[in-house]
Amino acid sequence: MSGNGNAAATAEENSPKMRVIRVGTRKSQLARIQTDSVVATLKASYPGLQFEIIAMSTTGDKILDTALSKIGEKSLFTKELEHALEKNEVDLVVHSLKDLPTVLPPGFTIGAICKRENPHDAVVFHPKFVGKTLETLPEKSVVGTSSLRRAAQLQRKFPHLEFRSIRGNLNTRLRKLDEQQEFSAIILATAGLQRMGWHNRVGQILHPEECMYAVGQGALGVEVRAKDQDILDLVGVLHDPETLLRCIAERAFLRHLEGGCSVPVAVHTAMKDGQLYLTGGVWSLDGSDSIQETMQATIHVPAQHEDGPEDDPQLVGITARNIPRGPQLAAQNLGISLANLLLSKGAKNILDVARQLNDAH
C-alpha cells in the first residue's frame, strides 16, 4: 500500500501541473516587456503551470559599433537563445518575429505568432524639431536608422535628408537623439515604442507609400524545439490566425527572394473581405531603383483552434497545428507568387547589386 502511495506522490510531482516552463529572452527592456506579455497570456491559459524567465545577451546586443547589415552573420539576435533551447536550458524563446530568419536551424520551429501590433515605422524627432515631419525637416538634416530597408525607401522619398546608421537598443538610440546634436530624427518601429509606453515620442507614423515595413514587423514569434510536442501544444494558444497568415505570406515572399538583413526588402499586408493583399518591394541601397507589386488571394481566416493538420510540417519556419492547413498554404503560395513576379521584373539584379555594395563598404 505504502509503495503505491509513493508512486502516486511521484506521479503528482512529475505531472504537468508541477512543471516549471523556462522562457528565454534577450536582456533589453523591450525584450523583457514583450516576454512578460507572452508569459502573462500563458499564465492565464495555464494557471497550474509556473513560468521562469531567463534573460541573456546576444551577438546583436554586444556589437554596437557596426551596422547590422555589415556584421555579416545571420541570427544576430537569436543564436545564443537557440543555443540555450538546444541544450534544454529553456523550453521556449520569445523573439520579435522580424529577427527570426525565414529558414531556422534544424530542430527549431516557430510554435506561435502572437497578435500583431502596429507594424509601421515611426519617426521620433529631436526636441528642437518636435512638430515637424520628415518632409518639413531642414535641408541636409541627419536621420538615424539601423535599417537598409528604411534608408533606401526614405532616401527616395525625401532626397533633402541624409540617413546615417544608429545602433543600440531603444533606450540607447533615444538617448543619442536627445543628448547629442548629430541626429534631427530617428526611425523606429511603432510597436516597440508603444510597448515601452513611449507613445508621446511618436512624431509621425510612416504610411506604406512612404515606407513599407519589415517582414514580420510588429509581431512576436515564440520559438521552440520542433519535436517538443508538449510545448508546441502549450504555445499553440498564442497563435493569432490573421497575423499568422499575413506573416506566412510575408516570410514566403522574403524567403523566395532570398532577402535578408543586408538587402532592402519591404512588405505591406492587409486582410479585407476574405482577401489577403500582399505588397512587396525591393530597392537599391540608395533607393534610386525599385520594383513594387501587389497581389491578392482569397483566404478564409479560420477561428482559433479549428482542428489543424496533425502532421505539422513547417511552413517558412512556422508550425501551427491548430490552424487549418489550406489557408496557410494559400498564404505561402501568395508570397511565392509575388516573389516570382518581382524576380521576373529584375528584382534579383537589384538585390545582387545591393548585396555587393553593402559587402564592399
Rank of each mutant, 00 (worst) to 15 (best):
V20E: 06
V20K: 14
V20A: 09
R22H: 15
V23T: 03
V23Y: 05
G24E: 01
G24T: 03
S28M: 01
S28P: 01
Q29S: 12
Q29G: 14
L30N: 01
A31L: 01
A31M: 01
A31S: 11
A31E: 01
R32S: 08
R32Q: 14
T35K: 01
D36T: 11
D36Q: 15
D36L: 09
S37A: 14
V38D: 01
V38H: 03
V39A: 13
V39P: 01
A40G: 12
A40W: 10
A40P: 03
A44Q: 10
A44W: 10
S45D: 12
P47M: 01
P47A: 06
P47H: 10
G48M: 06
L49I: 07
E52G: 12
E52Q: 01
I53M: 08
I53L: 12
I54E: 14
A55T: 08
M56C: 04
S57K: 01
S57N: 05
S57F: 13
T58P: 03
G60H: 03
D61H: 05
K62Q: 15
I63L: 13
I63C: 11
D65L: 04
D65W: 08
T66V: 14
T66A: 14
L68M: 14
L68G: 06
S69A: 08
K70V: 13
K70N: 15
K70L: 07
G72C: 06
G72E: 13
K74Y: 07
S75I: 09
S75F: 01
L76V: 13
L76G: 09
L76C: 14
K79V: 06
E82D: 10
E82Q: 06
A84H: 08
L85A: 06
N88V: 06
N88S: 11
N88Y: 12
E89W: 08
E89V: 11
E89C: 08
V90K: 01
V90I: 11
V90Q: 05
D91T: 03
D91Q: 06
L92C: 12
V93S: 04
V93K: 01
V93D: 07
V93A: 11
S96Y: 04
L97M: 08
L97T: 15
L97G: 01
K98Q: 01
D99S: 01
L100H: 01
T102N: 11
V103S: 10
L104Y: 09
L104D: 05
P105M: 09
P106M: 06
G107F: 13
T109C: 12
T109P: 01
I110R: 01
G111N: 01
G111W: 01
C114E: 01
K115F: 11
R116V: 01
R116S: 08
R116Y: 04
E117R: 07
E117S: 06
E117G: 11
N118C: 13
P119I: 01
A122W: 01
V124T: 06
H126G: 11
H126F: 08
H126W: 05
K128R: 08
F129G: 08
V130F: 08
K132I: 11
T133S: 10
L134P: 04
E135P: 11
E135D: 12
T136I: 14
E139G: 10
K140C: 10
S141L: 10
S141W: 06
V142K: 10
V143R: 01
V143Y: 06
G144P: 01
T145A: 14
S146G: 12
R149N: 01
R149M: 01
A152D: 04
A152M: 10
Q153A: 05
L154R: 04
R156S: 13
R156I: 14
K157P: 08
F158K: 06
F158W: 13
F158G: 08
P159T: 09
H160W: 10
L161F: 07
L161R: 01
E162S: 06
S165H: 11
S165Y: 10
S165Q: 12
I166V: 06
I166K: 04
R167L: 09
R167I: 08
R167A: 10
N169G: 06
N169L: 09
N171H: 10
N171L: 12
N171Y: 13
T172V: 06
T172D: 01
T172G: 09
R173D: 01
L174H: 08
L174T: 07
R175T: 08
R175K: 13
R175G: 10
K176M: 12
L177D: 04
L177A: 05
D178S: 10
E179W: 09
E179S: 11
E179L: 09
Q180A: 14
Q181V: 06
S184I: 11
S184T: 14
I186V: 11
I186S: 06
I186L: 08
I187S: 07
I187A: 08
L188Y: 01
A189W: 01
A189E: 03
T190K: 10
T190E: 03
T190V: 11
A191K: 04
A191P: 01
G192A: 06
L193W: 01
L193V: 05
Q194V: 14
Q194D: 10
R195D: 01
M196E: 05
M196P: 01
W198T: 06
W198V: 10
W198P: 06
G203V: 14
E209G: 08
E210N: 13
C211R: 01
C211E: 01
M212K: 01
A214S: 07
Q217P: 07
Q217M: 01
A219L: 01
L220D: 04
V222I: 15
E223R: 01
V224Y: 04
V224E: 05
D228V: 04
D230W: 13
I231A: 15
D233W: 03
L234D: 04
G236E: 01
V237E: 04
L238N: 01
L238E: 03
P241A: 06
P241R: 01
E242V: 14
E242G: 03
L244I: 01
L245A: 14
L245H: 09
R246Q: 14
R246S: 13
I248F: 11
R251Q: 01
A252L: 03
A252D: 01
A252Y: 01
F253L: 09
F253K: 01
L254P: 06
R255P: 03
H256S: 12
H256Q: 05
E258L: 03
E258G: 15
G259W: 01
G260R: 01
G260C: 15
S262A: 15
V265D: 01
V265T: 05
A266R: 04
V267S: 05
A270I: 07
M271E: 15
M271R: 07
K272R: 10
K272V: 15
G274S: 01
Q275G: 15
L276R: 01
L276A: 04
L276T: 01
L276Y: 13
L276H: 01
Y277G: 04
Y277P: 01
L278Y: 01
T279I: 13
G280N: 01
V282R: 01
V282N: 04
V282T: 07
V282K: 04
L285W: 08
L285H: 08
D286L: 08
D286H: 09
G287Q: 01
G287I: 05
D289E: 09
D289P: 15
Q292T: 10
E293V: 07
E293N: 08
E293H: 13
T294D: 01
M295I: 12
Q296I: 07
A297T: 12
A297M: 01
A297S: 06
T298W: 12
T298A: 08
I299V: 12
I299F: 14
I299T: 14
H300L: 12
V301L: 01
P302S: 05
A303E: 10
Q304W: 06
Q304H: 08
H305L: 10
H305N: 13
E306S: 11
G308I: 14
P309N: 15
E310F: 01
E310I: 01
E310S: 05
D311R: 10
D312M: 08
D312R: 12
Q314T: 10
L315A: 07
T319L: 01
A320C: 06
N322K: 10
I323H: 07
P324E: 03
Q328P: 10
N333D: 01
L334H: 01
L334C: 13
L334N: 15
G335P: 01
I336Y: 01
I336R: 15
L338V: 01
L338S: 12
A339P: 01
N340E: 01
L341D: 15
L343F: 10
K345A: 13
K345R: 04
K345L: 11
G346S: 01
A347I: 03
A347C: 04
A347T: 14
A347V: 03
K348E: 13
L351V: 05
L351T: 13
A354T: 14
R355V: 13
N358Y: 14
D359R: 15
A360C: 01
